[in-house]
Design a protein around this nucleic acid. Structure first.
Length: 542
RNA sequence: GGCGACGUAGCUCAGCUGGUAAGAGUGUUCGACUCAUAAUCGAAAGGUCGUCGGUUCGAGCCCGACCGUCGCUACCA
């Protein structure tokens, strides 16, 4: 029975290169999940795109003396190329810079305004008289009132870590011009998050199968009390307001529009098909499920803000699950491309083949807790686990079949009990792995695949077909057939994780159809195999 | 400061609503095999489950305190 599954993946921020923490935290788990769902016959719509608005992009553009669009284009193109190389199977990867996204955002704004969940308020913000613009908190610098650090930012002091209000800074100055900013009144639209305090709490508490850390975190926010938030800014870089009540120079701010990307991307995808209303299949159909793959820093946005926006809009499906991952860490710290901690995605691609990266990260997906990884650890997992257990298994069986079975798959003789036991074990593992991936326990599923491969290796060591074949050719050939048949099942479990090498095996054994061990096709030619994976040579200092 | 998470074998991590003598992978040691990318398979060794106290017939799992690490703290998204 086919089910619509929306696979919604965090929108990478086009302000700089992304690192493997992002990859292992969101993009890769989403891709594994989506590939599995397609394999079992569900209708997957997997969308994301580059998030192009927000303060850091304008800051960076100012620093480099280029336009925000230049920054966005640079990183969007980088992301698109990397997704291609890594085999991330988007149905649509777009950006928040499209006309469609602006239209969908404006529609959401208008509907929420009509529903009374958006209102206008006046507040005081710092204004730079020289640059003639309002300053976001991050653009205001000054002396920290807590520790005396002279280069504190308006939102937070990097020295003592305190959260600040820019109005409290001593000797405030504009990051743009160095001028002394002055407080000035400004009017903005606010999203009334507090309207949904009770509704969100009830909804969250009724969720089943969510990770504990996700629920705890979201409920913690709610217990503290939800604040209404300004959703517009005095900026030029952002989506135009659909109403002109506030006058010139106001734009919708990124935190409000970015999450709407899931909906706008779904509509953009549908517009490219022969049924422009097709997006409703995932968004209005009560049978549809939606999974939001994000890092834990994104939990408030996907477990609180976005559901609240959907509630305020009405008629659209709330998230089925937000299987947020914790962090991939490097030397104990959160990865950060900007601070040079950990590996960028490009660093990884320069050193490892895509399936190697996919395997090493999948084996370390931070599903329950932060998970430490390093270049040496990636290499170790590839060489000691992936190459040794799975790659070698495929190679040894194909090689023996090539040499001892007239280079083709032969009709097997009758199965012994141990033959049947191995195949039963693999079949059971396939069923288990399906349940695990469905529950977004991807590491466990990968481990199940690996342990199945080990079972096939154990079968070979126990039955020793290379010896048997010399004294009883038919029995020996049957063993090889059983081993190859087992591999034909094991590869199904690896398929969502390792699409590139999976395709190599499919070239030999035929395409995978469905989530089960298919019978081998008698007569299939088996050439002398080439290794599935190359071993990784580590630099001495890595 | 507040909130949250984590602290389990050398390393990376599992341990469901507390209950058979604490698990996996990897590493180490020993053995088997030699078809296969010196790959594989088996066995063994290895842990006062951060510390202290409490609840309980029974706690890695619950409560409290403390130590340590990390994250978030609503204008980074």
């Amino acid at each position: 029975m086919s089910k619509p599954i929306l696979v919604a993946v965090a929108w990478p921020y086009a302000s700089g290169s992304r690192h493997v923490g992002h990859l292992g935290g969101a993009y890769l788990p989403a891709d594994v999940f989506a590939r599995f769902q397609r394999r079992i016959g569900n209708e997957v719509l997997m969308v994301s795109g580059s998030d192009v608005h927000g303060t850091p992009i304008t800051v960076r553009a100012d620093e480099e003396g280029v336009t925000p669009q230049d920054i966005v284009d640079r990183y969007h193109n980088e992301f698109v190329r990397q997704w291609e190389e890594l085999g991330i199977s988007w149905d649509l990867y777009t950006s928040t810079g499209t006309a469609n996204h602006a239209a969908v955002t404006q529609d959401m704004f208008m509907k929420q305004l009509e529903n009374g969940h958006i209102d206008r308020r006046i507040s005081e913000q710092f204004y730079d008289p020289q640059a003639q613009r309002f300053l976001p908190d991050r653009y205001v610098e000054g002396t920290c009132p807590n520790c005396g650090y002279t280069d504190a930012r308006g939102d937070q002091c990097d020295n003592c870590g305190r959260t600040l209000d820019p109005i409290d800074l001593i000797n405030p100055r504009s990051k743009l011009s160095g001028a002394t900013p002055e407080p000035r009144e400004t009017e903005h639209f606010y999203f009334k998050l507090s309207d949904f305090q009770t509704e969100l709490e009830t909804w969250l508490k009724s969720r089943k199968g969510w990770r504990n850390h996700v629920l705890n975190f979201a409920l913690g926010w709610i217990e503290e009390g939800l604040h209404d938030r300004a959703i517009t800014r005095d900026i030029e870089w952002g989506i135009d307001l659909p109403v002109d009540d506030l006058g010139e120079g106001k734009r919708i701010y990124v935190w409000y529009d970015a999450v709407i990307g899931y909906l706008s991307a779904s509509k953009e995808w549908a517009a490219g098909t022969d049924d422009p209303d097709r997006w409703k299949h995932w968004w209005e159909n009560p049978e549809a499920e939606s999974y939001y793959f994000v890092g834990k820093d994104n939990i408030p946005f996907h477990a609180i803000f976005w559901p609240a926006q959907l509630m305020a809009y009405g008629g659209l499906n709330l998230p089925t699950n937000v299987p947020a991952n914790q962090y991939v860490t490097f030397k104990g710290g959160k990865a950060s491309a900007s601070r040079g901690i950990g590996l960028t995605i490009q660093d990884a691609l320069d050193q490892f083949e895509p399936d190697a990266i996919r395997y090493a990260l999948a084996a370390a997906f931070p599903e329950q807790s932060d998970t430490e990884i390093s270049v040496a650890e990636i290499a170790r997992r590839v060489n000691e686990e992936l190459v040794a257990t799975w790659g070698n298994l495929v190679n040894r069986v194909l090689s023996m079949t090539n040499k001892s079975c007239d280079a083709q798959i032969l009709e097997p003789g009758p199965y012994s009990d141990e033959d049947q036991a191995l195949l039963d074990l693999v079949d059971a593992a396939i069923v288990d792995a399906a349940a695990q991936i469905s529950a977004v326990e991807l590491r466990a599923a990968l481990r199940r695949a690996m342990s199945s491969a080990q079972a096939v290796n154990a079968y070979l060591n126990a039955t020793e077909p290379w010896k048997v074949i010399k004294v009883d050719q038919e029995r020996g050939r049957t063993m090889l057939h059983v081993a190859l048949s087992a591999i034909n099942g094991v590869r199904v479990m690896f398929d969502p994780f390792l699409p590139f090498t999976s395709a190599k095996i499919s070239d030999i054994l035929g395409p995978i159809e469905g989530w089960h061990r298919a019978p081998l096709v008698i007569g299939t030619p088996i050439a002398k195999p080439t290794p599935l994976f190359a071993k990784v040579e580590l630099e001495a200092d890595a």
